[in-house]
Design a protein around this nucleic acid. Structure first.
Length: 497
RNA sequence: GGCUCGAUGGUCAAGCGGCUAAGACGUCGCCCUUUCACGGCGAAAUCUCGGGUUCGAUUCCCGAUCGAGCUACCA
């Protein structure tokens, strides 16, 4: 590819960054970075009613968190292309200018049909088993008659929208970067469509074309759900005499349970980047997982850094079929990353202990090393997200369970149990605080094994029970060494009384 | 309903006319081990179905089936 690549991610500020949006952003970013092109962010906020306060900020924050940066955007304007919010562009009259041009050329016209009329038309079409389509309201009229009708509607106080005059029968086709050749006839568009709404705002399908052209976007990589918008956009490019960018429509990410497109309204699937962020997923892991959805590299590895993705990117390797979102694999990917980035993750893990109320912030700050050891042996290697550490570390490190009657009967009240616990209590007390190491404790228990001729669970469980109140858990000598002599002896004493 | 697109194990997927059809997640088993987790080893499991084309189809073509997307003054 020799031309300069300019791609964009164009979110609507209607809420948090969704997994599907994130994927679009990530692949566009990859596309730009791989070919040393430029990545632009544009805010498509023409639907005033759906914009939510903070939506734009949240989108951008989460993008940054993922490690996706941009060369131009609302916060980073290039004067040649700014502004980057469609509402601001609309105020500048950017869209009006081209709407007027189309109006002047007769390629678009003012339409005064009311919502009620349109609704009734569609219902009638549905009843007649016809595809819903817009019926041209000025059929058979000459220019003067049209003018007269419009003047009359205007006088009646009706608000006009501007509709694009769609050709009767024209094939719109393009070579899609992921799907190959796609062809859609103008008959399937559903009739003349609105390019300017009654409130004066351009519609998405129109504004996108104007902006992509003006911003010199060369490639548009977006979701499959935009395929049917493409012919509409193509006809605007044609009407204005512009060259369309190359399009690529990526297969969608669908819900594992239903096989349907992930919908922002589903509350049972975690599908916002924000949610994973709060659970303690690593941005690298999210990027890694998403980068492998609907796209695959050449080799056999599964764990990659952003840099590696950037180097490997190849727009010919997109999958054509939809991909189900597999939360288990995401968890595995995150686990891989957590282990690779343990130093960086440790403060987050400690913060989780504070959050869970197990320790105070002050303790967290003062005992970072000690807490790190606890976390390490509590089982970081097995967790999928940082938020999972608190339940793992609570017992026995910060609280003790009550010993159950069954455990007591099975391990402590037996003859062997009594022997083991009293011998261990004595031997442990004989160790100084400095000698209270995992190594020495292991040696001590091995000695007990020899002396008492008891081994396996009958040996270990009683000791585990009187010190930690558990019959299973991480390596016992390590627990005791980390928690220390005082803690151990105190537990033994309280338990044996 | 119409249009567009898609179809390899439960999931993500490699494959691009000839292979014992990669790999990963998950599942199961074994090993390690006082237990849990981690780790190691191994196993089960896939080309939707018909027709063609071809010496030969998972791969190319057609049809069926199934699935998804779209069908707004939302993006």
């Amino acid at each position: 590819m020799t031309e300069k690549i300019r791609v964009r991610y164009a979110p609507s500020p209607t809420g948090h960054l969704h997994i599907g949006n994130a994927r679009t952003a990530i692949f566009n970013w990859l596309f730009a970075r791989h070919y040393q092109g430029q990545f632009v962010i544009r805010i498509e906020d023409t639907d005033l009613a759906r914009n939510v306060a903070g939506g734009e900020k949240s989108q951008l924050d989460n993008l940054k968190w993922l490690g996706v940066d941009w060369d131009e955007g609302p916060d980073k304007p290039n004067p040649e292309y700014a502004p980057y919010r469609q509402t601001e562009r609309a105020k500048l009259g950017i869209y009006d200018r081209y709407i007027q041009e189309l109006l002047d050329q007769g390629k678009a016209y003012k339409s005064y049909k009311t919502e009620e009329t349109l609704k009734a038309e569609r219902e009638a079409q549905a009843a007649a088993h016809q595809a819903p389509h817009y019926v041209y309201e000025y059929a058979g009229m000459d220019a003067d008659q049209i003018k007269a009708a419009q003047v009359k509607d205007e006088a009646a106080g009706l608000k006009a929208v501007v509709r694009f005059r769609v050709s009767e029968d024209h094939d719109y086709q393009w070579q899609d970067i992921v799907k190959g050749k796609v062809k859609i006839n103008s008959k399937e568009i559903g009739g003349d469509w609105v390019i300017q709404k009654a409130d004066g705002m351009p519609t998405y399908n129109f504004a996108v074309v104007i902006d992509d052209h003006l911003m010199e976007i060369t490639h548009v990589l977006r979701g499959d759900d935009h395929v049917s918008n493409t012919p509409k956009q193509l006809m605007v490019y044609d009407a204005l005499g512009w060259q369309a960018p190359k399009f690529g429509h990526m297969a969608l990410i669908i819900k594992a349970e239903t096989g349907k497109k992930l919908s922002k309204r589903d509350e049972d699937t975690l599908q916002f980047i924000e949610q994973y962020r709060e659970l303690g997923y690593l941005p690298e892991a999210m990027f890694n997982f998403i980068g492998l959805l609907g796209w695959s590299p050449v080799g056999e590895n599964e764990i990659f850094t952003r840099e590696q993705f950037k180097d490997m990117f190849d727009e010919t390797r997109f999958t054509k079929a939809n991909a189900k979102f597999d939360a288990k694999k995401l968890a595995w990917v995150n686990n891989q990353w957590m282990r690779a980035e343990k130093d960086r993750v440790m403060p987050q893990l400690i913060a989780e202990l504070v959050k869970a109320g197990l320790i105070s912030q002050q303790e967290a700050d003062q005992q970072a090393d000690h807490l790190a050891k606890i976390i390490e042996i509590a089982g970081v290697d097995g967790i999928k997200a940082t938020s999972e550490i608190a339940p793992l570390a609570t017992y026995p490190f910060f609280k003790l369970h009550d010993i159950s009657d069954e455990d007591k009967a099975a391990w402590l009240d037996t003859e062997a149990g009594k022997q083991v616990t009293s011998a261990f209590a004595k031997a442990a007390a004989a160790l100084t605080a400095d000698d209270f190491t995992a190594e020495n404790l292991m040696k001590l228990i091995r000695q007990l094994q020899t002396d008492l001729a008891i081994k396996g669970r009958p040996l270990w469980n009683p000791i585990r029970l009187i010190t930690t109140h558990e019959v299973q858990g991480p390596n016992l000598p390590e627990i005791l060494a980390v928690m220390g002599r005082d803690w151990t002896l105190k537990n033994i004493q309280e338990t044996l009384v």
